[in-house]
Nucleic acid binder design. Sequence first.
DNA 1: CCAAAAGTGTTACTGCTACACCCATGA
DNA 2: TCATGGGTGTAGCAGTAACACTTTTGG
Lengths: 248, 248
Amino acid sequence: MPQLADQALVENALKQPLADFKVGVDNVIFSVDTARNRLLVLLVKRRDEPFLNYWSLPGTLVRKGESLENAAYRILEEKIRVHNLYLEQLYTFGGPGRDPRESEQSYGVRYLSVSYFALVRFADADIVNSQSGHVAWHFLEKLPNLAFDHQQILQYGYQRLRNKLEYSPIAFDVLPELFTLNNLYQFYTTILGENFSDYSNFRSRLLKLGFLFDTQEKVSRGAGRPASLYRFDSEAFAPLKDKPLVFI
Amino acid sequence: MPQLADQALVENALKQPLADFKVGVDNVIFSVDTARNRLLVLLVKRRDEPFLNYWSLPGTLVRKGESLENAAYRILEEKIRVHNLYLEQLYTFGGPGRDPRESEQSYGVRYLSVSYFALVRFADADIVNSQSGHVAWHFLEKLPNLAFDHQQILQYGYQRLRNKLEYSPIAFDVLPELFTLNNLYQFYTTILGENFSDYSNFRSRLLKLGFLFDTQEKVSRGAGRPASLYRFDSEAFAPLKDKPLVFI
DNA sequence: CCAAAAGTGTTACTGCTACACCCATGA
DNA sequence: TCATGGGTGTAGCAGTAACACTTTTGG
């Protein structure tokens, strides 16, 4: 994809003055509805032009004295109450013309979007109810048309989610304190698809890594043998940090 | 590392007006001196305050109408003539206070840095000689103190370089058209360290992947059996794109 | 013929895949 | 006692690490 810059473009750029920016932060917030095995994304309905009434990623413009990461957390807190989450920076989209508001050349302010990727615990993620219906979870499989280039950002975030899941323990940031191995497996299945791995192999792989502590407590769901509840043991995990792990 | 935002911080932020930004692009440009097996980074000596006379990553401020990526290419072209390279976005550093020029609260313009990571072919990377001595390759092992937070950005880029090397064919963007397997091995060794893999295992792994074409041409370096020259066959590689590969 | 560099092969081991099978419970 | 979900075991295969070995050159 990268290409050498056109010499003409370079020279043209140098004749231009510096661009003035407003910086936005847009969040791709995922959650897994473990009861129904659905992967969800949080979207908000726009109440202003441009793209009035389109769904979009929750975002905000960065304020004086505020760090990018803090802005990302602020968006989250404005939309949902949540106690457990994983968050990291995704990518920065900043081509001129990505936001139609730039087109009025008069002011010439550009909008740059630093996107963040978050995964939140569904159980305690309550949508803040100030503007009912304007903030909602959407199934990833059937998304509406999104404002701006948010479809692209979302795709990028989904890719990152799947990668992270394979080599990072982010699932445990978001599962309940205690969970069965089947819960864990379903979680992975919902995100990666049905055939990502055989259940029994998944079990042994994860258990062999040695950071899942069996509490011996059992839970039953209808018929069938009761399952052990496990806890993620972050101390046992610590030495494995940075090491390349495979959860797939 | 991520933490829930302090509620007080959120409320404070909302009282603030939007921040005005200038956006800078900083490049972490790596190259491998294959003759001496050294990993190099391109640095420029600052000619202005702040950090006058400190070495820093080559960077620029984004101009009107210019995309981030184009700005990244522009920096490259201003500092070195190069024909083969790999380039991708790295990370965006944007906390308030990362640039001392912000501290005069009067103007309140913030400087945000979108960093790019590049790997260039050493052989044809000629430093543009407008300001002799102010642009230079440095050994990664003995870096000077860098301006701003550039040390951090560089570390981040080095991490990315090592990761990319393990699962992407970026080495071939930067090696000569024709190379011996030993050239390739040395290239990897220079970046990943001596013990990343046994030479003969590295050979067979790479050859088994099937995208290295043996030209049958031989080249000798002093005593010893002459080595075959290979060529990266991008057509043969195409189907492997996106697939998870292991080059280690 | 020897040393140096390139290239091939072998062996032991690890880890994964795809199952078959056993266990504990509710109805 | 059967269906259901949880959990264990194993045989075959593939991939890897470590190292011994062969080949081709220069001196």
